[in-house]
């Protein structure tokens, strides 16, 4: 039993913090529902932060990177790049997105021309997305990820040796790690607001009705973080499914409260809260949502 971060992990997280400091506050000017930065993506790829698994630093390190980056208001594709891609093909470039076969009605996170689409069904296949595979969702997307639709799957795809269940396991670990970071970002943003905003001559944060629900959100965020790391460390399918289930459950409980406590301010695009919460909402349906993740966990744990 050893839950301490390694020196490498501490250094990597410190380096991420240093690199992302300019991005810690969102520049919301002209941003839509999602906020992205090509410069940030490039800096992260260049720094090798999405290659920690390929460098032999392990799944826990990759999960830590995913969690930390998700705390930023900027949407950064780290989940698939840091955790799934290296297990398929270490040489695959960073731009990747994940889709479940048979689920093409769903919008796909980070789908854009040039990325590698990883299709997870009975087997794992991939293809390079060209403009012909993509239908732009325009301004219709409420989620805080760049998203688009796949028009279909090409006839020829590369088949990977890795099992589909192993990819789903890694996806679940990534989903849980990203959710933990998103919850932490959303919670910090809400804590800052209610500590400042006064009503009835008191900061909102001094009302116990809010304090307790915020404290519960902290408990859920912390649980999500540790379950994600546990799942990354153990490599166990049941742990991964439990972590994903817990993450989606936690998001469901916390997101409503956090928006509630911002009042009308949280309904505006002037405040960044949605940049975290509307990513959590997008993740809530992945891999079948809570029910399917629960069933996967039950199968793995009790048969």
């Amino acid at each position: 039993m050893d839950l301490a971060l390694t020196d490498d992990q501490r250094e990597i997280l410190a380096a991420i913090d240093a690199l992302t400091r300019p991005y810690a506050a969102a520049n919301l000017h002209g941003a839509g529902f999602a906020l992205t930065s090509g410069a940030l993506d490039a800096e992260l790829a260049e720094g090798g932060f999405l290659d920690v698994m390929a460098m032999g630093l392990g799944e826990v390190t990759a999960a830590l990177v995913v969690e930390r980056l998700a705390r930023l208001p900027y949407a950064v594709e780290a989940q698939a790049a840091a955790l799934v891609r290296p297990a398929l093909d270490a040489a695959m470039p960073c731009g990747v997105c994940l889709v479940e076969e048979g689920m093409l009605h769903r919008p796909v996170r980070y789908l854009t021309a040039g990325v590698t689409v990883i299709v997870v069904g009975d087997v794992v296949r991939s293809f390079a997305a060209g403009p012909e595979h993509i239908r732009d969702a325009g301004d219709e997307v409420l989620f805080a990820y760049p998203m688009a639709y796949l028009t279909g799957l090409p006839g020829a795809m590369q088949t990977h040796a890795i099992g589909a269940d192993e990819v789903r396991r890694l996806w679940r670990v990534g989903l849980a790690a990203e959710s933990a970071g998103l919850l932490a970002g959303a919670l910090a943003s809400t804590v800052a607001h209610v500590s400042e905003r006064k009503q009835f001559s008191r900061p909102l944060a001094t009302f116990q009705a809010l304090r307790h629900r915020l404290a519960e959100a902290q408990v859920l965020t912390n649980g999500c973080y540790w379950l994600a790391l546990k799942a990354a460390a153990s490599g166990d399918a049941g742990d991964a499914a439990l972590a994903a289930l817990y993450a989606q459950d936690a998001a469901r409980r916390a997101v409503y409260d956090l928006h509630q406590f911002l009042g009308a301010m949280g309904m505006t695009l002037e405040h960044p809260l949605h940049l975290w919460t509307y990513r959590l909402k997008a993740l809530s349906s992945e891999l079948g949502g809570r029910g399917e993740n629960a069933l996967a966990a039950a199968d793995a744990i009790w048969g």
């Binding site: 540790w226 379950l227 629960a294 966990a297 039950a298």
Partner: peptide, 21 residues
């Protein structure tokens, strides 16, 4: 039943790992 059991397991393991931390 399976879904509820898994939810319980998630809560138990979250508490366990938060405690271990």
């Amino acid at each position: 039943v399976r879904i509820e059991a898994a939810r319980c397991a998630g809560l138990c393991e979250a508490a366990r790992n938060a405690s271990y931390a």
